[in-house]
Amino acid sequence: MELLILVAAGAIAGAMNAVAGGGTFLTLPALIAAGVPPVLANASSTVALFPAALSSVWAYRKQLRPIGPVSLRALVGVSIAGGLAGALLLLFTPGAVFDKVLPWLLLLAAMMILSGGKLRAWLAARGHRIGPRTTLTGQFIVAIYGGYFGGAVGLITMALWALLSELDFQAAAPARLATVAAANAAAVTCFIVAGAVWWPQAIAVLAGGVIGGYWGAKAGGRLPAGVVRIAVIAVTWVTTAVFFWRGYGPN
């Protein structure tokens, strides 16, 4: 029954990621509820959702392109380095500390999901632009966050790129997926080598994620955008509130 619940959580998370994102907000608490320690649950969730990210990059492979003056190869390179650094940071974070940090990471991700579109528009409308070197530095920092936790990392990436040049967000989606997948690839490799994955639980989530991702992609285009957005926001904020209670509520 526990594995079936994880499959269901993975399926819903896969559908969410295919439509709008936010799947981590389901898989992480589901794994913790199944008895996986928080740090290892975060690692297992990253591993479980990684195949879906790879399939998305493969689907967009012919549309990959640079972001302004910054080559995609450079962005992917620093994303791999940052993802590895974030994964190592996670593995060396004591569980008690992670319990205190996690609610704030969830809150950051929830705020990005809630206001990401407005933030992107605000950044794109500003005349201030950053250069390639600063962009790569920012990409490295974002990738560290992605390897450590990763909630709403795609939105944070797009906000960073909007400072570099006028950004067509639809055209930049393949590059965004590629950099997120690159950071996750480094993190997944690190987690597997370190033995930080609870495989039965991770495979259950992975199986559900593949199914949910496929059907979510098929059904996503027929769902009203407002309904999808409300559902994702509700899940993220409820999960954030639960983890704040778990980390800071009365014992």
Results as ranks from 00 to 15, higher is better:
144 I>A: 02
144 I>N: 06
121 A>E: 12
11 A>T: 08
5 I>D: 01
49 L>C: 00
224 P>A: 12
20 A>F: 10
181 A>Q: 00
54 L>W: 10
209 G>C: 12
63 Q>V: 03
30 A>L: 06
212 G>S: 02
65 R>M: 11
78 V>K: 05
23 G>P: 14
128 H>M: 02
111 M>H: 00
46 T>S: 14
187 A>P: 07
102 L>S: 13
125 A>P: 09
113 I>K: 01
90 L>T: 07
233 I>H: 09
195 G>A: 06
208 G>M: 11
168 D>E: 09
94 P>A: 05
185 A>K: 01
34 A>D: 02
239 T>K: 08
61 R>T: 07
249 G>K: 10
173 A>C: 07
31 L>R: 02
64 L>N: 13
41 A>L: 08
100 K>D: 03
91 L>Y: 04
103 P>S: 06
102 L>G: 04
86 G>L: 11
198 W>S: 12
200 P>Q: 06
179 T>G: 00
167 L>R: 07
154 G>M: 04
175 A>Y: 07
54 L>I: 13
85 A>Y: 06
85 A>P: 09
217 A>T: 14
54 L>N: 06
173 A>S: 14
61 R>L: 08
21 G>W: 07
68 G>D: 08
187 A>I: 06
238 V>I: 15
189 T>G: 15
1 M>G: 07
69 P>S: 14
122 W>E: 00
141 I>E: 01
24 T>R: 04
96 A>N: 15
209 G>L: 01
56 S>N: 13
75 L>T: 03
75 L>G: 08
15 A>P: 04
